[in-house]
Design a protein around this nucleic acid. Structure first.
Lengths: 225, 225
DNA sequence: TAGATTGTTAATCGATTAACAATC
DNA sequence: TAGATTGTTAATCGATTAACAATC
């Protein structure tokens, strides 16, 4: 089965795990750039992140031959490439839906800003919250979503609503033309193929931690390191 | 070191992916229980979560033969078993380190309470924050960590500090006797084998979303998730 | 019994790691 | 050149899915 097309960029979409690591590579490269480093090898980069050097090379080679044999990768050259691959070389207009504790915190969270994710509209269903100002934005009722999405060219939504309403809010967001949802509600969402979904499930993460502590404690792990 | 128990629970530790799904199973079972359901089959449970039925059975069978052929799983029977497996059948005394926006939001976040994760102490390095009260707890300086951990029997730490100090704070937490860390700082942490670590990297999650939107848009066949 | 569903083995699929010729 | 490091193929490892005898 010889494949006539070998262009890595447009062939198969990179697996989810690869993209996760590309995010980590990018952040590490930005740190190194800030520290004045010029080049880095796959094994150096891997060591900093606890990732195998062959994997680093393979992940990057998936998108193109960016490395220089005998030298490594040019940090300044690689950073904008990775930003382009991830799609954070542009501004993403983002709606924040649900202004509970978590939503308000994310609105002010540094890590979301300055990487192209710009919250441009707020939504809630609570009449007490509608009309309030947060970080210079007024809170809309959810019924305004379709109009505001169209008007402001909103592409992404951050969902910080209770689990019970998450599916219906996601449906409304999809119907309004949102292309991607970052879901914090602890509920499985069913979306059309064309809508991208990433879920962050904080309570299951804490459960993972509890399990890990228990097994680290009981099972005396044979393989040290 | 002869293990008198040959039951699956103490054999090989379940893979990370299995435990993630067990969290999802448990939450779904709790919802079903609330709705008055008595039994559920692996295929029904799988459908609700978008998981293959063989995988549901295999995941659960990893811990014991909990199912009833011809019938399915008894919901009321399975719930406490899964809670025990995950280790959320007890109280975990937890320290929250870093009282920025995210830290304060997590402190009040419902999903963390009522699942056994009890925040019993707060820490920060900012002199303006030390001494403040949040949710009935006083903010300690970080230098109090070893004493408070010992005194209050703290086992877990939620780390919501800037990336630059995350490693040193994690080192202090480990040295103080913490068994597990839920890390929200966007930095790779290097910890001893004996300390459990789960990292939640919000900015990389948003980058995953951007990538997914781009590929869903261009390539017609995005991964379902 | 007939129908349903489990636990588990075998088959498949995908991801990680090792090894090395090619390259600078 | 000699040394370093890439991109990639082959080998390994692990996880998912299909299939089915055993069971209720």
């Amino acid at each position: 089965m010889t494949d006539p097309f070998r262009d890595p960029q447009s062939e198969r979409p990179a697996p989810k795990a690869v993209i996760s690591r590309v995010s980590l590579y990018l952040r590490q490269l930005e740190n190194l750039h800030r520290l004045g480093h010029k080049t880095i090898s796959s094994s150096q980069l891997g060591n900093l992140l606890g990732i195998n050097d062959a994997q680093v090379r393979k992940d990057l080679a998936h998108f193109g031959p960016f490395g220089h044999p005998g030298i490594g990768y040019q940090i300044e050259e690689l950073i904008p490439i990775l930003r382009g691959i991830l799609g954070i070389d542009r501004v993403w207009n983002t709606a924040l839906i649900g202004l509970g504790n978590l939503g308000r915190a994310l609105l002010r969270y540094r890590a979301f800003r300055g990487r192209g994710f710009q919250v441009v509209a707020l939504f809630d269903t609570d009449p007490k919250k509608i009309g309030q100002m947060h970080s210079g934005l007024v809170v809309h009722g959810l019924e305004d979503l379709p109009a505001v999405v169209a008007e402001a060219g909103i592409q992404l939504a951050i969902l910080t609503v209770p689990a019970e309403v998450a599916q219906s809010v996601a449906d409304l967001a999809t119907a309004s033309g949102i292309s991607g949802i970052l879901n914090f509600a602890p509920a499985p969402l069913n979306l059309p193929e064309s809508t991208a979904l990433v879920s962050v499930d904080l309570s299951t993460q804490l459960e993972q931690l509890a399990y890990k502590v228990l097994t680290a404690r009981a099972g005396q792990n044979p393989g040290h390191d």
